[in-house]
Write a protein that binds this DNA or RNA. Sequence first.
DNA 1: TCCTTATTTAGATATTTGTCTAACTATCTA
DNA 2: TAGATAGTTAGACAAATATCTAAATAAGGA
Lengths: 91, 91
Amino acid sequence: MTATLVFKALADPTRRSIIELLKKRDMTAGEIAEQFNMTKPSISHHLQTLQTAELVLSERNGQHIIYSLNTTVFQDIMMWMMNITGKENKE
Amino acid sequence: MTATLVFKALADPTRRSIIELLKKRDMTAGEIAEQFNMTKPSISHHLQTLQTAELVLSERNGQHIIYSLNTTVFQDIMMWMMNITGKENKE
DNA sequence: TCCTTATTTAGATATTTGTCTAACTATCTA
DNA sequence: TAGATAGTTAGACAAATATCTAAATAAGGA
């Protein structure tokens, strides 16, 4: 897990919206693109960014590529944040 | 709390290091700058970014400006993440 | 009031990012 | 094998970002 890549990926509202869509169900690249007022290549690029950060996984199924969430990375980030907010163990 | 500003602020390793320093104790801008191989104006700019995201607070004390963590924003972000990772309530 | 210390603001520059159009690759079906 | 559909890659470009040096502001002390 590379924190910089993860936070950069989460810093874009379109990418956060993609994550929120994938929270509900796995979706193909095309289904995701339909939800946005943006070209398919742009969405494809955002998916690439999310994938590089390991926030989403993809699997080809025939003509389609199905994207899904990878929640383990979120948990790593939450650990980091909990450590920051923890009043105790300030060291 | 503006998620985009918060994640952008967290996306830089220098800024995350500043946060980790402030976790241990409040520090002046100069003390923070000493810890990095970077000019004071650059650090000042990073502190500005953290402040805009409401991740840190500042207070002038004579010649010094003392920076401190604001953990409430971290908690908001953790809420968002927990909601994403939650298996239940997929809606 | 003048000098020193602490910090920020301004302006410049190289790099990164988000978006687009055009072209390419992969798969299915007739 | 040809055409249609799904998706990505390549290349261009404007906007945003991280960094620097130089200059400005703020506060304290002689």
